[in-house]
């Protein structure tokens, strides 16, 4: 249960960072290592996907953005989805049905990512933000209570995408993270190089697949421990009775 506790602290810390603006601190220069809306009234960090779209609209070569993404990717890859991202935490809370992932379908998040960037270029607008369920929850709803947003068509579209995503999350654990999250797609590119990784000791593994039933992403850790969908949450490590799986933060080459 050690990892579970650490992860809860990590997720609480992610949420705390996401809402730290409530202390009166304004927007900083930091890019959030997850999907957290910068229009959230209490955000002090910039949404990487929102920023990428804006940079495309303004025709900027995004050096700073790339550097930040590489930094996060290299450090933990999708580990941020499992340990830090507030929207990932919401996915976690609704993770009731840990069904097996459809590997080919999981590439859909790359289409979302490419579509997001292309739409920003074609329409010179932040199209993804108009649909993003994270901003529905973190920006639209707070602003409705503040009297700035009103129930109109764009607002209802936001609520629609949020409701659809919530239903998806209830039916399939980590639905958003598995199939739709563009930030997850970005970080997953780094999953095989990141310093934080899931290690498998094949000599100890009995292929009992106990880890599979624990995995919120629906992958099989005992056969795909470096899968691009792995969010490194460590549930499989806690669930493995033979201690064949372990979490590791090292600079060594992978075997």
């Amino acid at each position: 249960m050690k990892i579970a506790r650490g992860r809860r602290i990590g997720q609480s810390f992610g949420m705390l960072l996401g809402l730290f603006g409530a202390t009166g601190i304004g927007m900083t220069h930091l890019i959030f290592p997850g999907l957290h809306c910068y229009a959230c009234p209490w955000a002090i960090t910039i949404c990487p996907i929102g920023l990428a779209q804006n940079l495309i609209v303004f025709g900027t070569v995004p050096y700073y953005w790339i550097a930040m993404i590489v930094l996060y990717g290299l450090a933990a890859g999708r580990g941020f989805c499992g340990w830090f991202c507030p929207f990932g935490t919401l996915n976690d809370l609704l993770s009731f049905r840990k069904v097996k992932i459809r590997d080919t379908v999981s590439y859909s998040k790359f289409f979302v990512l490419i579509g997001t960037l292309l739409a920003a270029w074609v329409f010179t607008d932040t199209v993804f933000c108009k649909l993003c369920p994270a901003s529905s929850l973190e920006a639209s709803i707070p602003y409705l209570f503040m009297g700035i947003a009103r129930v109109n068509r764009p607002f209802l579209i936001h609520m629609g995408t949020l409701a659809a995503t919530l239903v998806g999350m209830v039916l399939i654990a980590r639905f958003w993270c598995r199939y739709l999250c563009p930030m997850g797609a970005l970080l997953s590119l780094f999953n095989r190089v990141s310093f934080l990784r899931l290690k498998l000791d094949e000599k100890r593994c009995s292929r009992c697949a106990a880890c599979t039933s624990d995995c919120p992403m629906g992958i099989e850790p005992h056969t795909q421990h470096d899968n691009h969908n792995c969010i490194k949450c460590g549930r499989c490590v806690d669930g493995c009775h033979l201690n064949a799986l372990s979490m590791d933060f090292s600079l060594k080459d992978s075997p």
């Binding site: 220069h29 920023l51 920006a139 700035i148």
Partner: peptide, 20 residues
Amino acid sequence: QDQQAQSIGAVLCTSCVGIE
């Protein structure tokens, strides 16, 4: 660009909130 990123983040994203 860090300053530019901060500036983008500091202004209300109307798409995110859903303001017409």
